[in-house]
């Protein structure tokens, strides 16, 4: 029984990987007080940029991931100009970015509709992959999955233990104080938003060059929005985000294993499960107002004009 669950759990880890990248990026941006609802748009822009470069250069994901990161960061800067420099409504700017990104990616993607890419072979890590149970689940994955482990560790450590992390959090908690001490609040927020965009772009490029290595219009299918919801679910804490992402990874791939597990439900209901689950976790976490208030970055969503 346990043996038969290994491929399911390994699949969940891979399915969670784009959520981890996009979620961590959004988490960092929100810790500095900026809520960017454009994750879906940045992800799709990253997906098509990554796919295009991977296909054109022939280097696959090795070219696709950096291209996705750059494209994601570039679109994030459009958002930043309007939401930060012009202090426009952040939620609406994020929505504009999503609409723009969906359109732009579909527009560029028109040329790549029938292409497919080779994808990535799993990279089996010696010794670690021999650990019973955990080994085959965690350490027989593709290289990008390992990159998500490293990214998580770096983000969690930076936020918790470094001066930069302290600065990011200070800007999110009290931009006025950070400004008064002489820190460039907008500069730091620009940086955090660009980082969020790069992470969303990597998430998208992972989808289009590794996870399902072909281009499909709107292929992120709401994962960007789920990543935004995960940040709330995680109450802005990286470790909880990681666990939440794996939970959603498991829910997402349930539809592919349902028949094998003897679950006989129409495929559309299983496909709708991640979105329904998002609503459920939002409800569960939001009903505890105190918990939410305690962790919410105090300036989240509020424009800063010194």
């Amino acid at each position: 029984m346990i043996e038969s669950l290994i491929p399911v759990l390994a699949g969940a880890i891979a399915a969670a990987t784009p959520l981890i990248f996009a979620g961590l990026g959004e988490l960092v941006a929100e810790r500095t007080g900026v809520i960017n609802l454009g994750v879906e748009g940045m992800m799709l822009t990253g997906a098509i940029a990554g796919f295009a470069l991977a296909a054109e250069t022939g280097y696959g994901a090795a070219a696709g991931l950096p291209a996705g990161a750059l494209a994601g960061a570039a679109t994030a800067l459009i958002f930043a100009f309007f939401a930060l420099s012009l202090a426009a409504n952040q939620a609406a700017c994020g929505l504009a970015l999503t609409i723009f990104g969906i359109g732009l990616s579909a527009f560029i993607g028109q040329h790549y509709v029938s292409y497919s890419l080779p994808g990535l072979q799993p990279l089996v890590i010696p010794l670690l992959s021999d650990i019973p149970l955990l080994g085959p689940i965690l350490f027989k994955q593709d290289a990008v999955v390992y990159l998500s482990f490293i990214t998580f560790a770096v983000v969690a450590w930076t936020l918790a233990r470094t001066r930069l992390g302290l600065l990011l959090k200070a800007v999110g908690e009290s931009p006025e104080s950070a400004h008064a001490i002489g820190y460039p609040v907008l500069g730091i927020r620009y940086g955090a938003v660009a980082f969020g965009g790069a992470m969303a772009g990597i998430a998208g490029a992972y989808l289009s060059t590794v996870y399902t290595p072909l281009w499909v219009q709107n292929m992120s299918a709401g994962r960007g929005w789920i990543a935004v919801a995960l940040v709330v679910f995680a109450t802005w804490k990286p470790l909880r985000l990681l666990l939440g992402a794996y939970l959603f990874g498991a829910v997402t791939i349930l539809q592919f294993h349902a028949q094998g597990l003897g679950i006989d439900v129409p495929v559309q209901f299983l496909a709708a499960l991640p979105y329904a689950a998002t609503i459920v976790v939002l409800v569960v976490i939001s009903r505890d107002r105190r918990l939410l208030q305690l962790n919410l970055p105090a300036s989240l969503g509020k424009p800063f004009l010194p």
Binding site: G41, I78, F82, L86, A87, A88, N89, A92, C93, L95, A96, L97, T98, I99, F100, G101, I102, G103, L104, S105, A106, F107, G109, Q110, Q217
Partner: peptide
């Protein structure tokens, strides 16, 4: 591609929010 509609919609919303500032 008809997706150009989405590009125009996104730009319009961005510029509107910018002008509203």
């Amino acid at each position: 591609p008809a997706a150009i509609t989405g590009i125009f919609q996104g730009m319009l919303l961005f510029f509107l929010l910018g002008a509203d500032a």
